[in-house]
Design a protein around this nucleic acid. Structure first.
Lengths: 106, 106
DNA sequence: TTTGTTCGGACATAATTTGTCCTAATTAAA
DNA sequence: TTTAATTAGGACAAATTATGTCCGAACAAA
């Protein structure tokens, strides 16, 4: 697995788009949305839908699951930042994931 | 810090309520909502609001931030479970938290 | 300038959330 | 067993939030 450069989802998409030398207009057309929305997604002002993430993966030749993981980790980071106190909620969350998995299976 | 027993937020609240020997009706009244909603919260069928979490903390004499961390870690666990692939999104999220913090400060 | 891109707000519509109310199922008490 | 109370869960309405369009301002490049 290649090393992940840490940035927000929006920044990542913007980078991909600029590297491809495409204006918002072009990519937005492929996503079938208004350019201003894509601009907002790149500024982390709006959330992309799963469908849009899928299309972005195709457009920029990215692994779909990788891009989805970029998105979800963003979402999680924002949730963590909601907390001001010192509880390590990522550690707790990790345990809950295990708990919920065993619960589902039995 | 006392050891955290891992369970979902809803299960945790239910336990607190049953330990206190209170019916949904009583606690719901204090939260100023219908008992069925509280029941759903305890079955993880509905999300509590921040305001409700605050009130629950008071009712059951819990630290508000602790209870909030119980809630947020739940939310995060559910997000993680959305992902089927093997990317360790909690690790990525952790790095993004650091990234966003330095970004905010400078 | 002129042209194209990006930013960001006002607005409409769609989707989701939040709560009430009611009935059925379950549990506890008499 | 009967009766009463609690809990489960669905239909519905209202409120809130999300999603997208459209437009004009700001900015950049030609």
């Amino acid at each position: 697995m290649a090393k992940r450069k840490i940035s927000t989802f929006g920044e990542y998409i913007r980078q991909l788009r600029e590297n491809a030398g495409l204006p918002l207009r072009k990519v937005a057309a492929q996503l079938d949305i208004d350019p201003s929305i894509l601009g907002k997604i790149e500024r982390n002002d709006r959330q992309p839908s799963k469908e849009q993430i899928k299309k972005l993966a195709v457009i920029f030749d990215q692994d779909e699951n990788y891009l989805l993981s970029e998105y979800l980790s963003d979402q999680i980071a924002y949730k963590v930042l909601e907390e001001e106190s010192n509880f390590d909620i990522l550690k707790v969350a990790e345990k809950k994931v295990a708990y919920l998995k065993t619960k589902k299976n039995g």
